[in-house]
Computed example of a mutant assay.
Amino acid sequence: MTTDIRRIGVVGGGQMGAGIAEVCARAGLDTVVCETDNHAARAASERVTASLERAVQRGKLERLAAEDALARMIFTSSLDDLADRQLVIEAVVENPQAKTEVFAALDKIVEDPGAILATNTSSIPVMRLGMATRRADRVLGLHFFNPVPVLPLVEVVSSLHTTAEVAATVCDFAEHTLGKTVVRSQDRAGFVVNALLIPYLLSAIRIAESGFATAADVDAGMELGCAHPMGPLKLADLIGLDTVAAIATSLYDEFKEPLYAPPPLLHRMVEAGLLGRKSGRGFHTYDRG
């Protein structure tokens, strides 16, 4: 049983993967980040470096601590570099086939039979990913929230095969090593947070789609009338409209409830590449610089 987790692997160095890698390195862990190619690995390194620099500039992190965190990180384009990891966290695109392929590959590469494989999926059933391996009992969901270095919550999701010992180990790791607050969930699409959040976001999109109110007014209504720190359409832009659509689709596929069905406008915006903050335009317009 792996109890003292010190060697971490992260597959995917995008917004979520980079954030997960950063919090692991800041917690003093030996962290390897794997991307699809050398260019993407360099981009992941730059993403983490920029995030650490922002934390320093805002007085949230000492410069020496930021330098130490970077020194604990390796960025690679080879999954083979994860062979000795005790915990590997998958954070690739929210696509069942892509994630399944990653887990099948990790099952062959990660050498320690006691190692734990985790997914940062927002909505894809953990069981599906675990069954791509020969160690489904050591696969579970470890769902962080964006931005990972700032938001304190993680969801730990056990499949029908995940052992109680593995879940307890990961909960302890998230709480005491990473300093996060853990909520536990059963393995159903959306888990706890997105099962509640996504219908709210979709409802806001439908209001804007119908012309009932502008995006600015929808967000102002929830920020000023309900004391939400961010309006639903700004939040959808921050999450990424492609990610919102993917989660909604997973929820609708599982439950067939109309409140989970992605509105046509959401599909059209994703097709047009209007993905929110990361593309510079979604329901609002952003300075990509």
Rank of each mutant, 00 (worst) to 15 (best):
L79K: 01
P199D: 14
L70N: 15
N38S: 09
D242L: 02
E223H: 02
E254F: 07
G130A: 14
R26I: 02
K180D: 10
E209A: 15
D217F: 07
A227N: 06
K234E: 11
A189S: 13
R42S: 13
N194G: 02
D112R: 12
S123M: 04
T31V: 07
V56G: 01
L238N: 08
L201F: 15
E271M: 03
V193K: 01
L70A: 14
A164P: 05
S159M: 15
G276R: 01
G114K: 11
L151S: 07
V33K: 05
Y200M: 14
G280H: 13
S250A: 15
T285L: 08
R85Y: 10
D107W: 09
H267C: 03
E223I: 06
V156C: 13
M269C: 06
L196T: 13
R277Y: 14
V218D: 01
R63Q: 03
A18I: 01
G13S: 03
G211K: 06
V170D: 07
D187Q: 07
C34A: 15
V10K: 11
S210G: 13
L275G: 00
T243Y: 11
R54G: 12
V148R: 12
T2Q: 05
A18D: 02
F144D: 02
I20G: 00
L274A: 09
G17P: 09
V23F: 01
L259R: 12
V126W: 08
A18W: 03
H284D: 05
C24V: 02
